[in-house]
Amino acid sequence: MATIRLAVIGLGKIARDQHLPAIAGDEGFVLAATVSPDNAGVTGVPHFASLDNLFAAGPAIDAVALCTPPQVRFDLARAALDRGLHVLLEKPPGATLGEVAALVAAAEASGSSLFTAWHSRYAAGVEPARAWLAARRIDRVRIVWREDVRVWHPGQDWIWQPGGLGVFDPGINALSIVTRILPRPLLLQDALLSFPANRAAPIAAELTLQDTAGTPVVMDLDFRQTGPQSWDIVVETDSGTLTLSSGGAVLALPGQSRHDADREYPALYRHFAELIAAGRSDVDVAPLRLVADAFLCGRRVEVAPFVD
Rank of each mutant, 00 (worst) to 15 (best):
T96L: 06
V144H: 08
D211W: 04
G41S: 09
V100R: 09
F295S: 08
E264F: 00
P266V: 09
Y269A: 09
R270N: 00
R258V: 06
L114P: 08
L288K: 07
W145D: 08
N39F: 06
L31F: 11
S239V: 06
G240I: 08
V250S: 07
I172N: 12
V42W: 06
R184S: 11
G94R: 03
V285T: 14
T96F: 09
S120D: 14
A197E: 15
G44S: 03
G25N: 12
A65F: 08
C67L: 14
D157S: 13
P70W: 08
I233N: 10
A33W: 02
P46S: 10
D282Q: 03
V285S: 10
A95G: 15
G41Q: 09
A204N: 11
A79I: 05
G227Q: 05
F48I: 06
P59D: 13
P266M: 04
G248N: 04
G214P: 09
A213Y: 06
R180Q: 12
T243W: 03
Q225H: 13
L165F: 15
F272A: 05
D220R: 14
A134H: 13
V30I: 06
T215C: 15
E27P: 15
I177E: 01
V307I: 08
F272N: 02
G279D: 02
A33T: 01
D75G: 12
M219L: 15
H86T: 01
F272W: 05
I233C: 11
N39S: 15
F55P: 03
N198A: 04
F29P: 10
V178T: 10
R263W: 00
H119K: 12
L221D: 04
A191V: 02
A273G: 05
A124K: 04
E108W: 01
D82C: 09
P46T: 11
V72H: 05
A261H: 03
D62E: 07
V100I: 13
S120G: 04
G84D: 02
V151G: 00
L251T: 07
M1T: 00
A131W: 01
A213S: 15
S257A: 13
L51E: 02
E302P: 01
R199Q: 15
N173M: 10
L188Y: 06
A95V: 07
L251Q: 11
T243Y: 02
L103T: 02
H47K: 04
A32G: 06
I159P: 01
V250D: 06
Q71P: 05
S120E: 15
K91D: 04
P266W: 04
D262Q: 07
L81Y: 08
V167D: 12
R184Y: 14
F195E: 11
A131I: 12
N39M: 07
E108P: 00
H19C: 12
D26V: 00
G214A: 05
L275I: 03
R78A: 14
N53R: 13
V42T: 11
Y269T: 11
G10L: 09
L114N: 00
G227N: 05
L103V: 00
L275H: 02
D293S: 14
A261F: 01
Y265C: 04
C297E: 14
H19R: 11
S239L: 10
F306N: 02
A294G: 10
D148V: 01
H19Q: 13
E264W: 01
V126M: 01
A286E: 14
P196S: 07
Q18H: 15
L88V: 01
L85P: 05
R73L: 10
